[in-house]
Simulated assay, not measured.
Amino acid sequence: MLALDDITVVSLESGISAPLCTRMLGDFGAEVIKVERPDVGDVNRHWDSVVYGDSSAHVWVDRNKLSVELNLKSDAGLELFRELAAEADVVVQNYSPGVVERLGVGYDDVAAINEDVIYLNVSGYGRDGPYSDRKAYDMVMQGETGLILMNGSPDAPAKIPLSVCDINAATYGTISALLALFHRERTGEGQELDVTMFGGMLSWLGYFPQKYWHSDELPERIGMRHHLLTPYGPHETADDQYVNFAVLSEAHWELLCEAVLERPDLLADERFATNEKRVENRGALEPMIESRIADEPRDYWAERLAEAGIPWGDVNRLDDVLDHPQTEHLDLVKELETEDGPVPYIDNPIDSDSLEFAAAPMPDLGEHTDDVLDALGYSSEEREALRESGAI
């Protein structure tokens, strides 16, 4: 049995944040009905065509869903949505600010016909406040929440290549929906939820706000090094590879100097007596570490770091990661069977002896419109009339 069997999710979604959220709910067993614009669909369907003509983003975020084409600007299409929403446990939306209210599919509209519904709004900044009318995308939000200016090398900022702000909102959206379902199980009450990319990313800023509030310190761009710890991060070896290690304690520091680098003199240097002092004097310390690592090949350092018990690893390319022995051991790459051929995907990483997860391929645009309307009681003649009117 899947954990969310008998839970129905209806989603007005676009891009990555809400679609990834509902995909995770679908992974857990919910029936996810993805409502899409007729003949157009979600924008994520059109970003590339590398998977048998489908986009890589669509394959990533849209498995375990049913696709229904509805024209919400038509009276008949709007009525169909209301019929779906009336039976839904969860409604998710991440349309541009104000759109669901103008269409008549916002929380108040849905709650009027489904009082115990859980209605999740995923947005950039929230539905009120000075930025509530702004559209938000991952790149925009990386800039707004400080990520770009703290990421990169000293001579150039950089965005994080993953859609980290979208993934953040999707994760908090999934958590909030599960919490609300648990709350409803206990109380019988539905509710409206708001998850914002802005708030989510602020919650991920870690210790940097504390550093600012208590020492007026803004994070500088330090490339592959760590703002709070040193030595830390990838170091280039004599054979043009990298060895990546983390010194997290004074015990690690002593082992690194004595057993790995064979530089016990560093332990006697007052500039490096504590981690705070090492960070303060990183300009002197890090070039010495980098120079020493550059003297020997990767395998030399890997053996020494492993023997010393210092956390270390390689710096892999994407193809290395997908073929990684631990990827194979954890059975993380699975395949979806589609009419066009097998589609590999990264499986849900939760490992459990009791929980099961769904694995249905991503839907073609409108693939399930007739099936869903048939389940609502519409005859083939009625469906054809809706199609001719442009409602579906």
Rank of each mutant, 00 (worst) to 15 (best):
L147G: 02
S74Y: 06
V91G: 00
P97L: 05
V164M: 12
D128R: 12
N94C: 06
G106T: 08
D133L: 14
Y131P: 05
V100C: 09
I118V: 15
M150Q: 15
R134W: 12
V140A: 12
N94H: 07
V117F: 03
G106S: 14
G77H: 02
I118P: 00
L80R: 08
Y137V: 12
E87K: 14
V99M: 05
A85T: 01
V68R: 00
L149P: 08
N114T: 06
N114P: 05
E101W: 05
D155F: 04
K73V: 09
G77P: 04
D133W: 11
L78N: 15
V68W: 00
D116S: 15
N64F: 00
G152E: 04
G104I: 06
M139E: 12
Q93M: 09
Q142M: 09
D109P: 03
A156P: 03
V68S: 02
L84T: 04
V100W: 00
T145R: 03
N121F: 09
E69P: 02
D108F: 08
D138S: 05
A111F: 08
S123M: 07
S96D: 13
G152L: 07
Y107T: 04
L162C: 14
V92T: 06
R82K: 15
I118F: 00
S67N: 03
G146C: 10
N71E: 10
P154S: 09
G106Y: 02
D89H: 08
M150K: 13
D133C: 12
D75L: 15
M139C: 14
P97V: 04
S67G: 07
Y137C: 08
R82Y: 13
D108V: 10
D133V: 13
L120Y: 02
M141Q: 02
P130D: 08
R127W: 12
D116G: 11
A136G: 10
N64H: 01
A111C: 11
Q142G: 04
S153G: 12
G77K: 01
P161W: 05
R102Y: 08
A76Y: 05
S132W: 07
N121D: 14
A85H: 01
Q142K: 09
V99F: 04
V92K: 00
Y107A: 06
L72Q: 03
I113P: 07
D138E: 04
S163M: 14
Y119Q: 07
V117W: 01
D89T: 02
L80A: 10
A136F: 05
E83A: 11
N121I: 09
D109G: 07
D138K: 03
V68M: 02
V91E: 01
D75N: 15
C165N: 14
N151H: 13
S74V: 10
P161E: 12
A85K: 00
N151P: 08
E101Y: 04
M139Q: 13
Q142E: 11
V122S: 02
L84P: 01
A76G: 09
Y137S: 08
V140Q: 12
K73G: 07
E144C: 11
G129S: 10
L72D: 01
V110Y: 00
M150L: 13
L72I: 06
R82W: 11
E87Y: 05
V100K: 01
E87P: 03
E83H: 11
I113D: 10
L66P: 00
A85L: 04
E144W: 10
V105I: 15
V91K: 00
V140K: 08
N71R: 06
L103S: 09
V117P: 01
P161T: 13
I148W: 09
Y119N: 07
